[in-house]
Design a protein around this nucleic acid. Structure first.
Length: 299
DNA sequence: ATCCGGTTAC
DNA sequence: GTAACAGGAT
């Protein structure tokens, strides 16, 4: 019943994202999922389109320079994702003849691909029946079927069991991959969590499964009371400083490659923290430290 | 349990 | 100002 309501809602009002409805290759779907890790879809769309035009497949991305990859990642955030995506592309190109593997175990073994992304590719790119578990799906399933908010931290065994229990069967083999019930279920539950069943202020009056939702029936207990993740500040942290350094390097005009020590020091007054961040960026392979104290993007 | 960006929405 | 965001690696 919930599945039918959601499927109808999905076909009426799913956002027309460019990698949906069979318009992207499996590699393109994987790129969209990696870009979407902790980043809103609306911000991902233009980056994904430019990225796929420039590097249409894993082999193309594998041949790019690190500096180009980091620069093209732009302000999507968490730039280590960009390097891991290129490492992933190299493994796909070298070890799988540029053909993305089709099993969960092979996908989850790739750099930057965890449980969520591997499951999402299996479902959305290959049409396989598999429970996809992300923050949206955890919140929606917990609300609709348990009548309570999901807890922070990693997905619990109980949440995984619930996701597997309510995942529809794909009995109609005639359906095309992305029209299979399990795939529509995964996509529509996630979409509902993104646009209707949001964390802070869910739009229950617009919800297609409001009549069957235990959370709404219970009077939405503890709404917005418990975060899905531990709170992380940003201002003044290493993440902000790392971002300042990388942004300065990304913004260099053509022809200029490095930033000298004096200009680096102008980015952040606490030079102890600054040096710590430069060292960590170097460790991550996001920058290179030169003997004269200047820094540059890696080749 | 922590670290890792940057933007958006409230 | 702050929580939240299609997570992953350590």
């Amino acid at each position: 019943m919930v599945a039918e309501s959601l499927a109808e809602w999905w076909h009426e009002s799913a956002r027309d994202l460019p990698w949906r409805f069979g318009r992207a290759t499996p590699w393109g779907v994987l790129v969209s999922e990696v870009m979407s890790q902790q980043t809103q879809m609306s911000r991902v769309v233009p980056y994904w389109q430019a990225w796929m035009e420039r590097w249409p497949d894993a082999a193309a991305l594998a041949d790019a320079s690190k500096a180009d990859v980091i620069t093209a990642w732009g302000r999507l955030g968490y730039p280590r994702r960009a390097l891991r995506l290129q490492e992933c592309a190299r493994m796909v190109a070298d070890d799988y003849h540029d053909d993305l593997p089709r099993t969960y175990d092979e996908l989850v073994a790739l750099p930057g691909i965890g449980d969520y992304t591997a499951s999402a590719v299996m479902s959305f790119a290959y049409g396989e029946r598999i429970a996809v578990i992300d923050t949206n799906i955890r919140r929606v399933l917990s609300r609709v079927f348990l009548g309570a908010e999901s807890r922070g931290g990693a997905a619990s065994p109980a949440e995984r069991a619930l996701a597997n229990r309510v995942l529809p069967e794909d009995s109609a083999a005639r359906c095309r991959g992305f029209d299979r019930p399990s795939v529509v279920w995964n996509q529509s539950v996630m979409e509902l969590g993104a646009v209707i069943c949001t964390a802070k202020s869910p739009l229950c009056e617009q919800c297609p499964v409001a009549a069957e939702c235990m959370f709404l029936a219970n009077g939405r207990p503890g709404l917005g009371e418990r975060r899905t993740r531990p709170h992380q500040r940003f201002r003044g942290t290493d993440r902000q400083v790392r971002g300042l350094v990388l942004n300065a390097l990304r913004g260099l005009p053509d022809g200029r490659i490095a930033i000298d020590r004096k200009d680096i020091e102008a980015l952040w007054s606490d030079h102890i923290q600054l040096d710590k961040c430069i060292a960590s960026l170097d460790d991550d392979g996001l920058i290179e430290m030169l003997p004269d104290g200047s820094v540059r993007l890696p080749c």
